[in-house]
Design a protein around this nucleic acid. Structure first.
Lengths: 123, 123
DNA sequence: CCCATATTTCCGGCATATTGGAAATATGGA
DNA sequence: TCCATATTTCCAATATGCCGGAAATATGGG
């Protein structure tokens, strides 16, 4: 991921409303959530939601598919991984010993479920 | 980290110039870089740089200290960890099996140096 | 075809962000 | 004290972002 794309993604997430949308979609998983359902859960006006979904979509952070009259949005996990990797590689390239706190937070995240970050033992 | 603070941090990083500054500081490590040196390396005008450093500082992503006539800026690794953790916890809480790509990117980052993400074996 | 639902697009006003020039502040050295 | 360096602050112009009302588009059912 190049820097410009990363900035676009970060900018898209740098808005409380959009961050809430993205987090909701991340929690929902690949099944996704219909736009109207998102609006109901987050209590936002449809047109504003649509604009924010458009920003997230343009930043490649979410995808959409039509299902009847509804449009289902889902988080793009590959894009999310790419973004996190982009931020982490800087740290490692420059001063590996400094990344210990990062390792800790990752380990903590891994604690949430044994299957979440499997395969790390090989690292 | 609460959502509002996370959005502030992400918004600060969602600007190509500021992202470049932050990445430079992350690579520099705790030693940090003087404002003037940052301006020279990134070829930005001092006052614009100062404004952007202020945004990053207000978002708690960087810290500063005076050294003679220079002001040295450093990345705040704890804040960075907190931000990454905030984004990752959503994923794990919702659909752990989906986070495999995240685990891979973390493992890849760990490859950069054996000491980067030590302690993960215990996760 | 007509209607209800779902979502987006259009539009205008308002708020905030970004930028660079110029001046102000702070530090250290002669 | 005077000067050079380093950085910030002030300011104004411009640009961009955000929001909500109203209208338009798309789909499915009767």
């Amino acid at each position: 991921m190049e820097q410009k794309a990363a900035a676009t993604s970060l900018s898209a997430l740098g808005h409380e409303g959009r961050l809430a949308i993205f987090r909701l979609l991340v929690k929902a998983g690949p099944v996704g959530i219909a736009a109207g359902e998102i609006a109901r859960r987050l209590e936002v006006i449809p047109n504003t939601l649509s604009a924010n979904l458009n920003v997230l979509s343009h930043a490649r952070l979410i995808t959409s598919r039509r299902d009847g009259r509804s449009i289902i949005y889902s988080a793009d996990y590959a894009a999310m991984s790419g973004l996190l990797g982009f931020l982490m590689e800087d740290c490692c390239n420059g001063a590996p010993e400094i990344c210990a706190p990062l390792g800790e937070i990752v380990a903590k995240a891994a604690d949430c479920d044994g299957t979440c970050l499997t395969g790390l033992e090989t690292a």
